[in-house]
Design a protein around this nucleic acid. Structure first.
Lengths: 250, 250
DNA sequence: CGAGCTTTTGAGCCGAATCAATTATCGTGG
DNA sequence: CCACGATAATTGATTCGGCTCAAAAGCTCG
């Protein structure tokens, strides 16, 4: 169980030096300028760890909103199910990401969030978060930043869907995913995708077959290597060119 | 000048009973449970009215972030300009909408926002908003709700782009626009679009010609009437079916 | 080891982009 | 006020990318 490819996010290899080893949430709040007493208060009030098995829903669309979640380990997929069709994937959540903000507006979650592998989250009631946000400026700032960052990511995806072709979207998707993994402390020339081709296709507004072909083309051009869900980036700058983004300066 | 079609949003026809006649922002805060003293404080601290001429930018991508804006009258278009290409439209803002939340994450605006017609906004510095949010719970709730609603709208668009064909996207776009106008107090079987076909196309991930053809088809099927930018909905339920959304119950 | 899923690969078709040309509208200056 | 150029919108013909349908091969897990 612990040796499945997907457990790579929880790797204990020190070369990866994961910053979230002891629980993402603690780290989220660890460096935003709270003193020991405040930090203790935050932890007591709002951290409720929870284990989520692969395939299990964190919440469903329409369900009454009460909690925000921070991903500690594993990964999740958010999406909505239209009245006729099947799931439309709207995003993927990795350790350090937060989900549930969509529920604030109407006090009901607008999407569903499902674990792609056995995962752990910190659950925090919105009321506690709101209270702490009023009392501790760094906490307020953190949550506003998390929501704002989500807005920016969404609009980036929007632009991507509007302006890139199939293969370019896949390139952009991979780049973004690797970038996010790097932010989380992985060296990230190679990783194991937690999501299926079908999930990727849905997220990118494509069909499974098209995504598969895009992977095949990227491999043929020697921009990546990929066997199943394991992917290695061979030529990042070419991928950036294809995705029409500036090469991030390391 | 005052009789251009675009001035319809500022119509003084009492039949439209626009709720924002005396300034959107005052109304935004008018009914969220503040007493007179608090309301006065809010107004003094954060309301800075500003007139924006057609074509003028409210802010640019990369510009230092300091203000949030509420649209009082007129309309705006948000978008980003990729390094090579031209503007990608990411949204349209109508009276009552707020823009600028994308700047919180990095303290720089992530997009640009341009007036589609002569418009008025209320500018409020983020610092004041943050302070008031800490001190007045209704203010905190309002801003969190505005940001959350934006997240929900974005993910709806994402799903739409991923799952609908060209004509269906145009149907969904028109329905959403009319719905938003109704929320703002317009009877909304007919209205004048503030944006061009090109803007709509960019927003929907299509080309101008395709949008034009979609309009032609919708007209041929008698679902709408449209001459230039003026549009009338003839068969809302058929439009909803085409856009694959449930008919909103009135 | 076999059932069911995921992924890959192929052939043909359809929808939207592209290229191109015309018409309509807006803004401007004569 | 009208004529003009510029921009926006429409319409047609053609091309091409991604979808559809179909089938086979690879994994995963009981």
């Amino acid at each position: 169980m612990n040796s499945t490819p997907h457990s790579s996010y929880e790797s204990s290899d020190p070369a990866f030096s994961p910053p979230f080893k002891r629980g993402v949430s603690a780290d989220i709040f660890g460096s935003i300028g709270l003193n020991a007493g405040e930090l203790d208060r935050v932890q007591k009030l709002i951290f409720v760890p929870r284990s989520i098995k692969k395939g299990q829903l964190l919440f469903q669309a329409g369900q009454k909103f009460s909690e925000i979640f921070a991903v500690r380990s594993g990964s999740f997929r958010s999406g909505v199910v239209p009245h006729d069709g099947d799931l439309n994937v709207t995003g993927f959540q990795l350790p350090g990401d937060m989900v549930g903000f969509d529920g604030i507006a109407t006090m009901r979650y607008a999407c569903e969030v499902q674990a792609l592998e056995d995962s752990e989250v910190s659950a925090m009631t919105f009321e506690h978060v709101a209270t702490l946000s009023r009392e501790l400026r760094p906490v307020q700032r953190l949550f506003l930043q998390m929501m704002s960052a989500q807005l920016v990511r969404d609009s980036e995806v929007l632009v991507m869907l509007g302006s890139l072709k199939a293969e370019e979207r896949v390139a952009a998707f991979l780049l973004k995913l690797f970038e996010r993994m790097e932010t989380r402390g992985f060296s990230a020339t190679e990783l194991v995708l937690p999501m299926s081709r079908h999930d990727i296709a849905s997220y990118l507004g494509l069909k499974t077959e098209t995504v598969s072909r895009a992977f095949a083309d990227l491999i043929a051009r020697r921009l990546i290597e990929a066997h199943q869900r394991s992917v290695t980036v061979l030529n990042r700058s070419a991928l950036c060119a294809m995705a029409k983004v500036a090469l991030p300066q390391d």
